[in-house]
Amino acid sequence: MRTSLIILMASSGLGGMHLLGRGAVTGLQPASGSLFFALALYSLTLTLLLLLFTRVRQVLAERDQLKELAYRDSLTSLFNKNGMDHFWEHCKPNEQLAVLYLDLNRFKSINDKLGHHVGDLLLQAVGGTLKQFSSKGKRHIFRIGGDEFVIIAKRCGRKEAEQLALRILEKTTRNYQLERYELFVSASIGITISQGRIDSARLLKEADSAMYHAKQLGSGRYAVHKQGIVIQPVNVLGSSRAN
């Protein structure tokens, strides 16, 4: 209501100035009082327009901030589950996607033995590493809970997805310096590729299942889901170390 009133007042002021200006052009010179009133109205109009513009910018900024808070994980700044739901809602029905489901090995043990603070530091470190693999409009990274991350790559086939998984494993399977602790942590990744119409629940279930199969072989490995499970061992630097 307030915004509508401001727009109405601004429009009336500009309309009045237009009529007075047209009268001056046609030789109907306004009296000095009318000219003063027109200038005052014009100044008020500019002020109101400036206030309106400022308010619109403020509202848009607040909306973007709320959207950011709703769609971002507060710990890692990656997209959260709400962000993933938003992605699925706006995804093209038959778009080719590769879904990579990543889980950290022995994360629960770290949390239980060293405390949640150290666990949070590890998640932040891993989240920071994963950010380098995001690509606007092509790859999206989500933390969907605990130590579980999902990478969704658009227009990505199996070979490219496996190469991406390998690069991610090489970057995330390493020693982490977390305050006074130096911990070797590895990850496991499950991969699935969309076939035909997008079914988000099925894709996540397939990728999650493939990830658990990868864990059965040890650390630093990925598995690809394709008409069942195909296990693909990966030689990642340090992956043979005890976990």
Rank of each mutant, 00 (worst) to 15 (best):
residue 92 K to P: 08
residue 94 N to M: 09
residue 99 V to W: 11
residue 100 L to N: 05
residue 100 L to R: 02
residue 100 L to W: 07
residue 102 L to F: 04
residue 104 L to C: 05
residue 106 R to S: 13
residue 109 S to V: 11
residue 112 D to Q: 02
residue 113 K to G: 02
residue 115 G to T: 04
residue 116 H to W: 02
residue 117 H to K: 13
residue 117 H to Y: 10
residue 118 V to T: 15
residue 120 D to A: 01
residue 123 L to R: 09
residue 123 L to Y: 09
residue 126 V to A: 07
residue 127 G to H: 10
residue 131 K to R: 15
residue 131 K to I: 05
residue 132 Q to H: 14
residue 135 S to W: 08
residue 136 K to R: 15
residue 139 R to N: 13
residue 140 H to S: 15
residue 141 I to S: 10
residue 143 R to C: 11
residue 143 R to Y: 07
residue 145 G to W: 03
residue 147 D to Y: 01
residue 147 D to P: 02
residue 147 D to M: 03
residue 148 E to Q: 05
residue 148 E to I: 05
residue 149 F to W: 13
residue 149 F to T: 12
residue 150 V to R: 01
residue 155 R to K: 12
residue 155 R to W: 00
residue 155 R to I: 01
residue 157 G to M: 07
residue 158 R to E: 15
residue 158 R to V: 13
residue 160 E to T: 13
residue 160 E to Y: 00
residue 161 A to H: 06
residue 165 A to Y: 11
residue 166 L to T: 15
residue 167 R to G: 05
residue 168 I to E: 11
residue 169 L to T: 12
residue 169 L to K: 07
residue 172 T to V: 15
residue 173 T to N: 11
residue 173 T to D: 09
residue 173 T to A: 04
residue 174 R to V: 11
residue 175 N to P: 00
residue 176 Y to R: 02
residue 176 Y to A: 06
residue 178 L to M: 09
residue 179 E to P: 01
residue 180 R to K: 10
residue 182 E to W: 02
residue 182 E to I: 07
residue 183 L to D: 04
residue 184 F to V: 02
residue 185 V to G: 01
residue 185 V to K: 03
residue 186 S to H: 08
residue 187 A to H: 06
residue 188 S to F: 04
residue 191 I to P: 04
residue 191 I to H: 03
residue 192 T to A: 09
residue 194 S to Y: 06
residue 197 R to S: 12
residue 198 I to Q: 08
residue 199 D to E: 14
residue 200 S to H: 08
residue 201 A to P: 00
residue 201 A to V: 12
residue 203 L to M: 15
residue 205 K to N: 12
residue 209 S to L: 14
residue 211 M to Q: 13
residue 214 A to T: 01
residue 218 G to L: 05
residue 219 S to N: 15
